[in-house]
Amino acid sequence: MVEYRIDRHSGVATYVQIVQQTKQALRLGLLRPGDKLPTAREVVEATAINPNTVLKAYRELERDGLVEARRGVGTFVRRGLNTTPADSPLRAELDAWAARAREAALDRDDVAALFTAVLDEHFAVPDPNGRTGRTGRDDRADRHDRHVRHDMNPGDPS
């Protein structure tokens, strides 16, 4: 069972925090296939957040194929999130790249900025539509001097 911790000052939308913490629990093996997620009622009683926020997070996890809702029974984990094993070729390549970056006299922040920039190029930026997504988006826009356009149609239609 996971216990969600909501940080209202993180700038990350609350439902995104639930999604992220669930995925983190899957990665760490704290949640395994067949495990039951807490009910919306249990989550809101402990966190005092709106029930729809929990349902929205669970719907997103369901869309990703990670969990499934069984009517009247609860929401269950369908599959875990496998982290890339330590001996994978991808990791070895990244390792070699990091060594070269160090030789080129980049410091940790330079490397992180470079990596994040490339990451943003190849992967969708998470949470374009969170209620409190302001901080993340602003920071990102400032750091990379990119113009993030306002999403006219944010969020889940429901």
Binding site: R131, T132, H147, V148, R149, M152
Partner: peptide
Amino acid sequence: RPAGPLAEDWRASTPSLEE
């Protein structure tokens, strides 16, 4: 309250409820 696409060179973000 946008009444159409925003200009390209504007930085835009969703406000918080308090804002």
